[in-house]
Amino acid sequence: MSNTGAILKDNLWTSNPIFMQILGICSALAVTNLLVNTMIMTLGVVFVTAMSSFTVSLIKQLIPRKVRMIVQTLIIAFYVIIVDVLLRAYLPDISRALGPYVGLIITNCIIMGRAEAFAQSNPPLASAWDGATSGFGYMAVLLTIAFVRELFGFGTLFGYQVLPDAFEPWIIMVTPPSAFFLLGIIIWIGKTIMNREGAPA
């Protein structure tokens, strides 16, 4: 599992955090109605997951076992606040649009999951790569959901009008329940393909 290709395939597909491990669902429901917000938010998650896994791996020998998880939380919170500060300073409009969701990256189970499951027992660079690819797996699913929700909920993609004016937006797509349906469909499709490939489901 130390080779980079295997980690990539694992995190993007065979154990994708969203549709195989069903982690990080709250944000998959909350921030997927506009592609721009989803993009920035998931980039934030990629950054935080990679950096916190890297840091945890770097100092893992020094962390006493008793306070292991609270230290991981501290490290994750640190990087999340860094993202928040950077957005507020350099991308104020997006920072305003994301509102509390940036801070809520801290509660994303994927990040803690990778720190605990991978970074605690692997070297720093491999951990950073594992974190980043987990983030990409998360990003791929969220962007797919956001694509459908923005298209039918607003008639736009990345804020650009793509459907004709006569199109009546579907309010259901704007509200969180639509993400439940879409996520369910994505899990269904993913598992079906995986079963066909003969991989363990």
Binding site: N33, I171, V174, T175
Partner: peptide
């Protein structure tokens, strides 16, 4: 500034 339901 507002925190109303996005889209509604």
């Amino acid at each position: 500034d507002q925190n109303e339901t996005p889209g509604l």
